[in-house]
């Protein structure tokens, strides 16, 4: 009962109330959706602590057992404490951790941002390796993918125009017609699938998340 029925009832009641309040602007219903969002973010805050706890303990285990590469866990703790402490110190000194002159933002801009952009830029290499494999078209479907990929790729660089001056036009036609149609189909499918899943969740048919 406590472990299954009540959680299912909570899902049902919350779901139904929020669907209904979507159509009722009158107080107190009109603001319930907004309140639910606030509630969700508060709950999220608590579970975030669980996440941090999980990661901190993962590295603690590595350190304690001197597992292979244990000293990298020290780097992890160093990074964690560095950003956390500078965040608190910056808040005390500037009244706002996100003040542009704070040490917290300085670390963010000089260490975290380059790490993020470099990780992101790895994509240039990976898209090349993925293209290489995709371009050895394994079957007829992959060939279709290959054809539009090559046209669009060429159509967006000057070489494409030099090869055939209408290639940029063909590219925009492919993007606006051939790409848009199926993408709309995918979105309609996902939307209907999402609604069906939401109904299953509210009705308690889909309950994997409660196991």
């Amino acid at each position: 009962m406590l472990k299954k029925q009540i959680p299912l009832a909570i899902t049902f009641i919350t779901g139904v109330i929020i669907v209904i309040t979507f159509f009722i602007p009158h107080p107190p219903f009109g603001r319930l959706q907004q309140d639910a969002l606030t509630w969700y973010s508060v709950i999220f805050g608590f579970t975030m602590l669980l996440g941090v706890d999980s990661l901190v303990r993962f590295h603690y285990r590595k350190l304690r057992r001197r597992e292979k590469g244990w000293w990298f866990s020290i780097i992890f703790y160093g990074g964690f404490l560095l950003s956390f402490i500078t965040g608190v110190v910056s808040e005390v000194r500037f009244g706002d951790a996100f003040n542009i002159n704070s040490s917290f933002m300085y670390f963010y801009n000089t260490i975290l941002i380059p790490l993020q952009s470099t990780m992101f830029a790895l994509l240039a290499f990976f898209i090349a390796s993925a293209s290489y494999r995709a371009f050895r078209a394994r079957n007829i479907d992959a060939t279709f993918l290959l054809v539009t990929a090559v046209i669009v790729m060429l159509g967006r660089v000057p070489v494409g125009y030099m090869l055939w001056h209408k290639l940029p036009n063909l590219t925009s036609w492919i993007l606006n017609v051939l790409q848009l149609g199926p993408m709309r189909g995918i979105m309609i499918g996902i939307a209907l699938g999402t609604v069906a899943m939401s109904l299953r969740l509210i009705l308690g048919i889909e309950r994997t998340y409660l196991s």
Partner: peptide, 26 residues
């Protein structure tokens, strides 16, 4: 269900659940 990422999964993975196929999994 991220339609923008489907092309990359299709190119790099052995099998892909496309959009709603994933939602029908259960």
């Amino acid at each position: 269900t991220a339609k923008e990422q489907l092309p990359f999964f299709v190119a790099a993975c052995d099998y892909v659940l496309i959009g709603e196929e994933m939602l029908a999994a259960s």
